[in-house]
Each structure stands twice: as structure tokens, then as C-alpha cells.
């Protein structure tokens, strides 16, 4: 799992530019799948036969895109101005290293040095438009040699393993979901299952809007990386999820009220098999679930997420045991789906 996450988080894919991740996942899945294809939005569909066909299709989804940027403008003196892809808190940006385009030309997000700023200037957080990406090039022409307006720009963060079984990387939202799907589909399954790696989640769940139309699932399982705000400043009721508690089952969020009976099914599986789980107690944010469960005639929906600290920043932190627990619960949900359908 660690190696897989290391490789997945080394890939770059902002919304609309999911190619690297799709190619990598498709290559991995080829030997395990019975059908594999992409659609016009770059959703990657992987169908795997199990021992039996379930009463209604089951669909598992995670998104391939990550938060990042696009090149918005190249200035005459060789700076790159950026537009965000997804929600990024500009406070985490100054001083960070970014990779431009598929050739990964390195750049740094600069800001005026402290010596030349007034104290009141330093009180306000800079916005993205105050920041310029410096690739060391002194002219527009030199920059245009390796990129273009519209090109993708991603965080440059080497994968790290540290502390108590923790990892730090970019794009854990939602490569961690992709990795769990890949590990699950590499095992023998009880039931035929659709694994869908969705595109363009971070800019409005656009891949998911069309993805479920092909499948008409009876149950959707959405695997995500979700915010863990278990920081010293945060009281337990406001942390949403916490590291070490296992996968988080969603109650409701800005786009979905998760099916109570399906959540109960997942909770019972976890309890009976000694798998750790927790609840995602925040009702903020929107995920692919919001689109998937109201597609066509609708489906039941489970949200299961790995708690991730500092989500949507260059350095996200997650716990390998949480990821393992989430994978175990995801496999249980898939492999017992007929029990749920028959309940």
C-alpha cells in the first residue's frame, strides 16, 4: 500500500488533466479486470467479475484529480500567474515549490521579502493573485518554451514516511481512495463490481455527474480522503474526523444525506469483523456522492473516507493503519452486498 501511494502521489493530475493517473491505474488494473474503458469526461471504468452477479450493480468510486493550478498568464519578465483548480487556501502557498506541465519544470511561489514589507502588510494573508510563480526564466519566450496558458501546475511534494506509521504527500485527496480501489480490485471478489475512477471532482463533481448513468447501481460506495482537524486548537466535537480512528462513515454533507440503512450495514460489518471506524461529524463540503446517488432512478449511498490532515495543501498527512482499516471495510462492503440488498 505504501509503495502504491508513493507512486500514485508522484503523479500529477488537476481536473481536466487526469491522463497520468488514468494511464497508471489502467496499467495496474489490466491484469485484474474483465472490462476497462474511459468516457468523454475521462472517467476510468474498471469492471471486475466476482463469483456471483449481485441483484443490482455495486459501484465503487474515487476521483483521480487533485487540487492544483492552471497557467493563467505569462508576464513579459517571465513570471507565471496562476488560476486555482479546486479550493485552495492561499495562506498555505507562499514559498512552496510547484511543478509546471507534464515535463515538471520546477518553480517557486514567491512573495516580497520581509525586509521590504510593512507590519500591516504582513497581517493579511496574500491571495493567489498576489503570488507569482518563478521558474527562473527572465523572459516570456523562455517560459513559453516549456509551458502555455492553460497548462497544469501541481504541488511538488516528495512522499515521506514519518512518525507513528504516518505518511505525508500531496494529492492524498483522493489518491488514497484510488489506492484502496486498486488494492480491492486486485483481490478475488464475491460479486461483480464496477470500480469508477472519476474525473474533475475538485471543480464540481463533473465526472461523477455522468459516471453513474452507465452503471445504474443499487449501491454506491464513495471512497475519499476527508479532513481530519484533530489539532490542539480544536475541540473533539469540531474536528470532523481524527487520525487513528479508522475509516470515517459520512452522515451528511453539503451535497448528500447518506443512506442510514447502508451506513448501518457498514457499521455492522465493521463491528463483526473488528474493523475500526468512526463518523465524519462535519456537514461541510461536497463530494462525488452528491451526483452519484441522484443519477437516473437513484441509488443508496455510503461515504467512507480516510482521515487526512491538512487536506488541499501541499503536504497532506494520513495514517497507514487508517488506510488499511478503510480498505478492509471497503472490501467487506463489496463482498457482502447481496446481504444488504436482501435486508
Amino acid at each position: 500500500m505504501k509503495q502504491l501511494l508513493k507512486e500514485l502521489t508522484a503523479l500529477n493530475a488537476v481536473a481536466g488533466y487526469e491522463y497520468e493517473v488514468i494511464r497508471y491505474i489502467a496499467e495496474f488494473c489490466k491484469q485484474y479486470s474483465d472490462d476497462i474503458f474511459t468516457d468523454a469526461l475521462n472517467n476510468l471504468f474498471v469492471f471486475k467479475k466476482g463469483k456471483k452477479q449481485p441483484k443490482m450493480p455495486i459501484m465503487v468510486a474515487a476521483h483521480t484529480d487533485e487540487v492544483g493550478f492552471y497557467v493563467k498568464k505569462i508576464t513579459e519578465d517571465g513570471y507565471i500567474k496562476l488560476a486555482a483548480s479546486g479550493n485552495i487556501d492561499a495562506r498555505v502557498l507562499p514559498g512552496k515549490t510547484l511543478d509546471v506541465g507534464t515535463d515538471r519544470t520546477r518553480g517557486v511561489l514567491g512573495i516580497k521579502a520581509i525586509h521590504l514589507t510593512r507590519p500591516e502588510e504582513r497581517k493579511a494573508a496574500p491571495s493567489l493573485k498576489d503570488l507569482s510563480l518563478d521558474t527562473g526564466c527572465m523572459s516570456k519566450g523562455a517560459v513559453e518554451a516549456f509551458t502555455y496558458v492553460g497548462d497544469m501546475v501541481c504541488f511538488h511534494t516528495p512522499f515521506e514516511e514519518f512518525g507513528d506509521n504516518m505518511i505525508a504527500a500531496k494529492a492524498l485527496d483522493d489518491r488514497v481512495g484510488c489506492a484502496i480501489m486498486m488494492k480491492a480490485l486486485a483481490t478475488e471478489l464475491e460479486y461483480d463490481t464496477w470500480f469508477v475512477f472519476t474525473a474533475q471532482e475538485e471543480i464540481g463533481m463533473r465526472g461523477a455527474t455522468v459516471a453513474a448513468k452507465r452503471i445504474n447501481p443499487g449501491l454506491c460506495l464513495v471512497l475519499e480522503g476527508t479532513s481530519a482537524v484533530d489539532l490542539p486548537e480544536c475541540t473533539p466535537v469540531k474536528r470532523s474526523t481524527f487520525i487513528g480512528g479508522g475509516g470515517a462513515l459520512s452522515l451528511m454533507d453539503g451535497g448528500t444525506i447518506y443512506s442510514a440503512d447502508a451506513r448501518k450495514y457498514a457499521m455492522d460489518l465493521a463491528k463483526n469483523n473488528d474493523v475500526k471506524y468512526q463518523f465524519r461529524t462535519s456537514a461541510n463540503a461536497v463530494t462525488d456522492s452528491s451526483r452519484l446517488h441522484v443519477t437516473n432512478a437513484g441509488s443508496k449511498i455510503i461515504g467512507l473516507s480516510v482521515p487526512v490532515r491538512y487536506i488541499h495543501s501541499p503536504a497532506c498527512v494520513a495514517n497507514l493503519d487508517d488506510i488499511q482499516q478503510t480498505l478492509t471495510l471497503a472490501k467487506l462492503i463489496i463482498n457482502n452486498v447481496e446481504e444488504y440488498y436482501n435486508a
Partner: peptide, 8 residues
């Protein structure tokens, strides 16, 4: 309506 998110 209302949904329970946590119990202290």
C-alpha cells in the same frame, strides 16, 4: 430537521 453529529 436535525441530525446528531456527536455526543459529548
Amino acid at each position: 430537521g436535525f441530525m446528531v453529529t456527536d455526543i459529548d
